[in-house]
Amino acid sequence: MNLSFYLQHYNYWICVSLFMIGIYTMIAKKNIIKKFMGLNIVDTSIFLFFISMGDKRNAAAPILHAENEIIVNNYVNPLPSVIILTAIVVALGLTATALSFAVKIYEEYGTLNSEKIERLW
């Protein structure tokens, strides 16, 4: 495990830092919408993690041209992308639910600041 091993896998470092930024945003920011943005950053970092694990250097999208000559190394792994397509839809549903909560909170409390809401609670 030398330094170049870690440097070559920089894509995972990006995922990890995005994940941390997202978690930090969820904890530290007081605005509810910003908390949800942090949630979306966390989700996006996981999506990037999945996509980058399925990728290969100099590989094409896995569309089959000729059935008798398939070289696996020429195509990226399609399964993570498919999984992430589903996970994106799930995250979309979650964000929609979260934002509708934000609308209801603003209607009831007149603010989106979570500290002020705690005081009004």
Binding site: I23, K35, V42, F49, L94, A98, F101, I105, E108
Partner: peptide, 20 residues
């Protein structure tokens, strides 16, 4: 609404961890 919102934040972190 607030308790649902808290549950949503906690639960969403749980789901993200599971997916990871």
């Amino acid at each position: 609404i607030i308790s649902g919102f808290k549950y949503l934040l906690m639960g969403a972190i749980g789901s993200s961890f599971t997916l990871l």
